[in-house]
Design a protein around this nucleic acid. Structure first.
Lengths: 176, 176
DNA sequence: CAGCGTAGGTTCATTCATTGAACTCAAATC
DNA sequence: GATTTGAGTTCAATGAATGAACCTACGCTG
């Protein structure tokens, strides 16, 4: 988001946050990173966005310190994009967006259910566990498919995401 | 956000939420509504966005049921835009964005401080009161200027917002 | 009552971002 | 040697954002 056109005039931490994660597709890339997606081609296949936009977003998120690019093999050279601590701190934002979307956008069924892995209780509005009354870190969140989800999606990433899984757990582990 | 270019392929409540509030400027309009701004000209002066964009956003938010347009005088006819219950439910999203922006975007000082009006305690990350351990509804949130804020802003709306005030309280009440 | 001011918009040309398709490049595999 | 695969970059066409100017209905002032 560039100059004059950016939110620079805004003395506001919300505006600053939106400078980083407010562009089109950006938060969906971050969401996918929470789902365990780490590779360019998996983001591409799952999000269905233009390659050029994905490359731009990944670079911007890396520069902002939300994602870290790391080499996972040398020959051929391949990199993966992993959430940093700063990126993991975005979880409450995604959680509150998801809660609001389910409750207030017409026709949104429960598509995914998030539970506290330790006790199986469904998370509250802020991502806390009502039973244990603690904030649940994303590592301890279990994601389960909800009723509204297509049971036979065409792309392999969506198919892998139909299985219950921990947030942040790399997708490679249980690829079909 | 139109077709093919929208997030329709995404079976995801986050994507649905972003369809409504994910466009440029939209969340800042909503933020201003929480600050008590209700009139076209006040949004315009405070946000500094093009009039055409403001008109488009206000209409979209009204259609989505986030804002309600209501006539507050008949001659000349004047309308104001007020948050609906669905709009007020966006508060946790704004709160978590603000917390993340302050903590993780370089150089962001505390610009505004939010406290539980009943007890004066500063809100926690999710907008809860650590002292009373309850979620604080925006009506009960007091907003105070932080250190990083310009003490002599040029536009009258920013000047009015330097005073401590309740969220959602109409700005007209204490206009300078 | 003529002229000016004001709130709340539209319209318009220019600039900028997004899209979708095609192209590149290096390494691995057939 | 030919093909495939991952990870990009380049490019023309489309769509959205910007900033300025214009419009309209009403109220106010002299």
């Amino acid at each position: 988001m560039a100059l004059g056109k950016d939110y620079v005039a805004q003395e506001c931490s919300i505006a600053r946050a939106l400078e980083v994660i407010g562009e089109r597709w950006t938060l969906l890339v971050v969401r996918d990173a929470f789902y365990g997606i780490r590779r360019y081609s998996d983001f591409l296949g799952h999000l269905g966005l233009p390659r050029a936009v994905l490359a731009t977003r990944l670079q911007a998120l890396e520069r902002a310190g939300v994602l870290e690019k790391r080499r996972y093999q040398d020959s051929p050279p391949r990199d993966e994009y992993v959430l940093t601590d700063s990126g993991i701190a975005l979880w409450p934002i995604l959680r509150s967006l998801s809660v609001w979307g389910t409750a207030h956008v017409a026709g949104t069924k429960r598509l995914r259910v998030f539970t506290h892995a330790d006790c199986g209780t469904e998370l509250g509005s802020y991502g806390e566990c009502p039973a244990c009354s603690t904030a649940v870190p994303p590592q301890d969140v279990e994601m389960l498919p909800g009723e509204g989800l297509d049971p036979e999606p065409s792309d392999p990433v969506s198919r892998a995401l139909l299985r219950p899984r921990r947030l942040l757990q790399p997708l490679e582990a249980d690829r079909v």
